[in-house]
Design a protein around this nucleic acid. Structure first.
Length: 513
DNA sequence: GAGTGCTAG
DNA sequence: CGTTCTAGCACTC
């Protein structure tokens, strides 16, 4: 839960080891076994049972098997089920967040702007009976919500000494008490203290490239592997927005980056939470290869990718009318087709190349026949390759052969939503989803005749949620977080926690407990 | 609009 | 060390 903006209250949700959790939900027996999800020769993620035995993300499959011979390995190259789960969770969460300010980041993270919900609930707190408070999820129906104790923080507090003590429960949350945000008499704030100890690249918004440049600035260009903390950067002589702009700016970098990073290093991020879209702004599909040498093999792979891409377009861009995909209406039209390849880096290239570089691409207007629903997938895919992709490929790689490609990617981009469509739409199985949501919401509804306070069922007591996708947090998942929050069965009470924190901040007597 | 680069998980 | 399969935005031309 992070304050990304002075006026707004933002919750940051993170579904941990997402791919592995999706498999565990399908097969609960997997939970107690070491489970790794494989893409190519890599463990892309693994569950906590596996992590306890020494496995980790981005590990070679061969290493994983050596370290943990009993590891259960499942293939995760087909992202369909992960995409579906991600979409389901996004729509589910958004359905009860007032104002729909829910921003998606990748498959497994969400930012929620809960300002209005918190302010409403803080306004309803009873100062004389905080222990039996009730958090409202619905302005219209006062019985929808959950009971909570507004005299305690959930989990750890920083500085320690909050009423509950230091327990890292539930789910490894830590609360940076709100008083710590404002510094008095020049004393170092808790937020700075918290950030200062961390490596720069752990800070959201500072990726490999910026971290590299910052390290070069602070410890010199040739000792780039040295660990550099936020403190090292902030306390570097002459450091400030201007120096950062000089160190990080240049061709291709965003304007004002110096000020933006300076703010981030102080725990300030003023970017708004964007409304999540119902239609993606691009759809892409790719595969990587150890050898792709003949034009015929390239052609074959392009057909396979095209088939997936058109199938994705039909799932994500077609209006759903009771499963009859053949007669849907396009809710958005991508205008552009892009083909990207990645030539394999020369064998001797030793420099720690930043991954995802080296891609080259060509784009053309997307041919309209691709929207034809009467023609079958295979025929459309063949036609797309023959009419568009092969000539694009020849422009990318004019040489007859010897390309040594490690990757092919095709994408439809430049999405234009159909007029009069707007929100609503998207998502497969929406009907099913909201039926499930109803079931869940029922468990949050107080059933006693006298609705307010007392005996509402808290989320922790809800076995359905306890069994959900949402998993325990990891300590290395660092956020600019006031509460390092993961989505889990107990996540909703975190709203309550924040309401509590704000209540005390307003009274400026939070420390007595 | 086309293409590149950087961010994120 | 990099190794996957995405997705979005900023920038240049």
């Amino acid at each position: 839960m992070a304050v990304r903006n002075n006026q707004r209250i933002i919750i940051h949700l993170d579904y941990d080891c997402f791919y592995a959790s999706v498999f565990e939900v399908e097969q609960p027996a997997l939970k107690s076994l070491p489970l790794a999800v494989q893409q190519k020769q890599i463990v892309v993620t693994c569950n906590y049972t596996a992590r306890r035995q020494g496995l980790h993300k981005l590990q070679l499959i061969s290493d994983a098997k050596r370290i943990c011979p009993d590891v259960v390995i499942v293939l995760g190259e087909d992202l369909t089920k992960f995409r579906d789960a991600s979409k389901y969770l996004f729509l589910f969460v958004r359905s009860f967040i007032w104002g729909a300010r829910v921003e998606k980041l990748g498959f497994d993270e969400l930012f929620l702007d809960v300002t209005e919900m918190i302010e409403y609930n803080v306004g309803l707190l009873n100062a004389h009976d905080l222990a039996t408070s009730f958090f409202h999820l619905d302005r219209k129906d006062p019985t929808v919500g959950f009971a909570y104790d507004a005299t305690t923080f959930q989990g750890s507090t920083q500085p320690a000494g909050g009423k509950l003590g230091n327990l890292h429960k539930p789910n490894s949350q830590t609360t940076l008490l709100p008083s710590s945000i404002t510094t008095e008499n020049g004393a170092a704030s808790n937020v700075l203290e918290f950030l200062d100890a961390h490596e720069i690249q752990k800070i959201p918004g500072i990726g490999s490239r910026l971290a590299q440049k910052l390290r070069a600035q602070v410890v010199g260009p040739d000792t780039v592997d040295e660990k550099v903390t936020v403190r090292d950067v902030r306390q570097y002589p002459g450091m400030g927005p201007a120096l950062l702009e000089k160190a990080l700016g240049g061709p291709g970098s965003a304007k004002g980056i110096g000020m933006r990073i300076w703010n981030i290093l102080h725990g300030v991020d003023n970017t708004d939470v964007l409304e999540g879209r119902d239609v993606p702004t691009q759809i892409s599909i790719e595969d990587s290869y150890t050898r792709l040498e003949t034009l015929e093999s390239v052609r074959r792979e392009l057909v396979i990718l095209s088939r997936s891409l058109i199938r994705r377009m039909r799932t994500d861009l077609l209006e759903k009318n009771d499963g009859n995909a053949a007669h849907g209406r396009w809710i958005a039209h991508p205008r552009t087709l892009r083909l990207s390849t990645r030539p394999r880096p020369p064998p001797g290239s030793e420099t720690a190349r930043v991954y995802s570089a080296n891609r080259i691409s060509r784009s053309v207007p997307l041919p309209l026949f691709i929207f034809n629903l009467d023609e079958n997938l295979d025929a459309l895919a063949e036609r797309l390759v023959r009419d568009s992709l092969l000539s694009m490929f020849r422009k990318l790689h004019p040489e007859k052969s010897g390309w040594n490609l490690s990757l092919l990617n095709i994408a439809v981009i430049n999405m234009v939503e159909s007029a009069g469509d707007q929100k609503q739409s998207s998502g497969r199985d929406i009907g099913k989803m909201f039926r499930q949501q109803e079931t869940v919401l029922q468990d949050w509804t107080v059933r006693e005749p006298s609705p307010h306070r007392s005996t509402g069922m808290a989320l922790e007591d809800n076995p359905e949620m306890g069994d959900s996708l949402w998993e325990e947090g990891e300590e290395d998942d660092l956020g600019l977080s006031v509460v390092d929050c993961v989505v889990c069965g107990a996540s909703i009470p975190h709203f309550a926690q924040l309401a509590h924190a704000m209540y005390h901040a307003a009274d400026s007597e939070y420390e007595n407990g």
